[in-house]
């Protein structure tokens, strides 16, 4: 049981390390299956047979997909979704209270903090994946920036840098979030997704159970759902 647990941890680490190296899903599936095959034959623990997962992943020297691929396909849309969600949140309160949307430079700077942190993610993604505290620290910075942006939001038009009609921003950002979610849903429902880890023998993909599919859809629609919740909250507190 102990060996199964440590092997599961080792294989999880191996998949993460290969993912970080942008290795194709079918090559990851092949690597995992051949490692399991040898462990079945030798009865060795994975760490003993292959060494640390990180070193083994590096030693395999797989050709990586171009580094900018995931940035173009995943990071930029996520960043746009986040930006739309943050702007929606700013506009929704003003819209429900039929007031102008008041913006100050400090507020904008604080709103930009999570956007910049996500935009710079390629620079420190390895650290986030390998060290839990880095991810927690980034999330905490984003949360604090969000709270502070509400604290420094101007209450009088005379204090504001910009005073704009919130309706176009509310509708525009809502549309952006919905369009991105539809795009992500279409992408994730395509059968031949290069990112899937494919078992070389059965040709099936890992994580294609109902639970995993639901989780993918929830993730795809996360921003619109949260935006709806914010709209409901703003209407309730009006």
């Amino acid at each position: 049981m102990m060996q199964q647990t440590s092997d599961k941890k080792w294989f999880d680490e191996l998949v993460v390390e290969l993912r970080l190296r942008q290795v194709h899903g079918s090559a990851i599936g092949d690597t995992v299956a051949s490692a399991r095959e040898l462990l079945r034959d030798t009865g060795q623990p994975a760490e003993e047979a292959f060494g640390p997962a990180r070193d083994y992943a590096a030693a395999l020297e797989f050709p990586a997909a171009p580094g900018h691929d995931w940035v173009r396909q995943a990071l930029w849309p996520s960043l746009l979704g986040l930006l739309a969600f943050l702007l929606f949140n700013q506009a929704v309160t003003a819209w429900t209270q039929q007031e102008l949307l008041l913006v100050s430079p400090a507020q904008l700077a604080l709103l930009a903090t999570p956007v910049v942190l996500v935009a710079l993610l390629p620079l420190y993604l390895d650290a986030v994946v390998r060290r839990l505290w880095v991810g927690i620290a980034i999330a905490a910075i984003c949360a604090v920036a969000g709270v502070l942006s509400a604290v420094v939001a101007p209450t009088q038009p005379s204090d504001a840098w910009l005073a704009i009609d919130p309706s176009p921003w509310l509708i525009g950002t809502a549309l952006v979030m919905v369009v991105l979610s539809v795009r992500n849903t279409v992408r994730s429902s395509r059968a031949a997704d290069d990112d899937e880890i494919i078992d070389p023998l059965s040709g099936t993909t890992a994580g294609t159970g109902a639970g995993a599919r639901i989780l993918v859809h929830v993730t795809n629609w996360l921003f619109p759902v949260l935006a709806l919740a914010m709209l409901g909250l703003a209407l309730a507190l009006r």
């Binding site: 060795q44 030693a59 395999l60 020297e61």
Partner: peptide, 12 residues
Amino acid sequence: IKGGTLYPLLTR
């Protein structure tokens, strides 16, 4: 020979 030595070689 360990798997961690042989498999990377075969992959290359």
